[in-house]
Design a protein around this nucleic acid. Structure first.
Lengths: 251, 251
DNA sequence: GTTATTCTGTGCGATATATGAACAAATGTC
DNA sequence: GACATTTGTTCATATATCGCACAGAATAAC
C-alpha cells in the first residue's frame, strides 16, 4: 500500500470515537486530544464532524456519542452471517441450560462478544455484543487460542498483559500453551473462576463445514451453583449439539 | 461551524462503513462506491485505511468488516450509562416474564436497541443491540414518540415511510398521533401484530429522576401464546416495577 | 481579586488528500 | 476469440486538512 492510499483524517476520527469507550461518555476537546494523542485542533475537527453527522451531541463544551454510532457496529453484526446465524441457537441453548450462553470471536489478544443470550446475571461485569475480555483467561478465549498454531498463540500471549484476576488465574505462558494443547485434544475448555471469583464456564469451538474454527460458544454458571467438575457433564452435550447444528450452516 | 471544521475524509469513511450493513458482508471497491455514491478512488482509500487499521479484511478483491469494528459501537454502549444500567434489569424482567425484554432509544425515525434479554425467539428478524426498527409500528417506538410534543412526533412521521407490514399496521398519521395521546395518558403502548404477524408487545417509558423519557423498555410475546388484550394485565405490573427501579438511578 | 493554568477557537504555511481522466487488467457477452 | 463493459490502479494538480503558534475566554489556585 502506498502512502497516499491511507486517509489519515479517517484513521484519526476512528481513534477519537474509540476514545469515548475508555472513560466517561462525555469528553471535552482537550480530554479527547489527551486520550488520543492527537492535536487539539484535529480532534476538534473530528468531533465537530461527528456532531454534524449526528453521531455525537455537542453542548458547546462536551461531546457525547449518540446511539447513531451503533450503526457502525451494526454494519458488521447484520452484514456478517455469523452473529445472525448463531443468535437463535444461543437463545435455545441458554433456555435449555438455564444459564447464560454467548458467542465470541478473537480480535487481537481479546475475545469480542458477537451474540449473547443471558438467562441471569452471573458476572459483575456486564456483557453485550462488542464487549471484550482478555482471551487467555476466558473459556472461549482458550478455545479460540487453542485453534491457532502454537507459535501464533504464543505470540498473542506475549502481547497480552497476563494478570491474575483471581488466585485461580493461570498466567504462565508455558502452562497456558500446554493448556491449549489439552483443549485442542478434548475439544472444549473449562474455566474455573480464573476471570472472576464465583464464575465457571465451558466453551467449545464453532467450526465451519471445512472444520475451521470461526467462533466459540460458551455457557457460564455461578460456581456456587455448578462445580467446575460438573460443567462438562452438564453442559457439554448441549454445547456439542449446538456446535453440530451450526457446522453445516457456516460458509 | 466553518467549512474547515469538517473532516470530509472522516465523513466519507463512516459512510463506507455503513454501506456494509445494507447488503452482504463482502464489498468490492466498485460496489462500495455505488452504495455510497462516492468516487471509486476515494472509496478505495477509505477501504484500504480500514484494512490497514484492522477494521476490515481484504483478500485483494473483496473487503469485509472485522469484529474490531464493534469497538466503535462499544465505545457508546460502555461509555453511556443507560445500556449498562438497564441490562441487568432486563435480564431479571425477561426471566420473570418468561419472554424477551428489550430497551431502546429513538434515533431519527427509528428505534435503536441498546440492550436486550432474549428468552426465546419470537420474531423472524433477529434483534441485538444496534438493531433498528421503524418507530411508528413498534411498542417502544410508540412510547418514545408519545413522549415528544405532537408537532415533533408529526414531523418524524412525515419523514417516515409508513408502510403496512401487516393488515394490523396503523399507517394514518392522524390516527397515529391520536394513538400517541392515548399512550401518553395511559403510560404504556401495546402493539398487536403491527410489525409482524404473530407478535405482540407492550412497552413503557424509562424516565430519569426529572421525569424526562430517556428510553423505553418492552416485553414481546407470541400472539399465539398471549392475546394482545392480556398483555397489560400480565406484563404491565412488572414493567412498571422495573420502570420505578430505574428512575432514581438515572442522571 | 489577581495570577496562573488550562482550554477553545482561528489564521497560516506546509503537507496531505480528492478528483476525474487515463490506462491496464479482468470480466462478461456474443 | 474478439468486442464491449466493468473494475482496479495510477497520475497530475486543484483543493482541503494538519499542526503550530497565538489570542482570548474560562477555570483554577492562591
Amino acid at each position: 500500500m502506498r502512502e497516499t492510499d491511507f486517509v489519515s483524517g479517517f484513521a484519526r476520527g476512528l481513534k477519537v470515537i474509540e476514545a469515548f469507550g475508555e472513560t466517561r461518555q462525555r469528553l471535552s476537546i482537550a480530554e479527547a486530544a489527551r486520550l488520543t494523542g492527537l492535536d487539539r485542533a484535529t480532534v476538534r475537527r473530528s468531533l465537530l464532524t461527528l456532531a454534524e453527522l449526528g453521531y455525537a451531541d455537542y453542548d458547546g463544551k462536551f461531546f457525547a456519542l449518540t446511539p447513531k454510532i451503533l450503526r457502525l457496529g451494526h454494519a458488521y453484526l447484520s452484514a456478517t452471517p455469523l452473529p445472525v446465524l448463531i443468535q437463535p441457537h444461543l437463545d435455545q441453548l441458554s433456555e435449555k441450560a438455564g444459564q447464560s450462553a454467548s458467542a465470541s470471536v478473537l480480535d487481537g489478544t481479546e475475545i469480542v462478544y458477537i451474540a449473547r443470550a443471558s438467562q441471569r446475571r452471573v458476572m459483575s461485569i456486564n456483557l453485550m455484543p462488542g464487549s471484550r475480555l482478555p482471551a487467555y483467561c476466558a473459556s472461549m478465549g482458550r478455545v479460540l487460542l487453542a485453534s491457532l498454531p502454537d507459535n501464533e498463540a504464543r505470540s498473542i500471549l506475549a502481547r497480552t498483559d497476563l494478570r491474575a484476576n483471581t488466585p485461580n488465574t493461570k498466567t504462565d505462558p508455558v502452562e497456558l500453551v500446554a493448556e491449549f494443547r489439552r483443549v485442542r485434544e478434548l475439544g472444549y475448555a473449562i474455566i474455573d473462576q480464573e476471570l472472576e471469583v464465583g464464575l465457571c464456564s465451558i466453551a467449545v469451538p464453532v467450526e465451519n463445514d471445512r472444520g475451521q474454527t470461526v467462533a466459540a460458544i460458551n455457557i457460564g454458571a455461578p460456581a456456587a451453583h455448578v462445580q467446575a467438575s460438573e460443567m462438562a457433564q452438564r453442559y457439554l452435550p448441549m454445547l456439542r449439539e449446538t456446535q453440530k447444528t451450526l457446522r453445516p450452516m457456516l460458509r
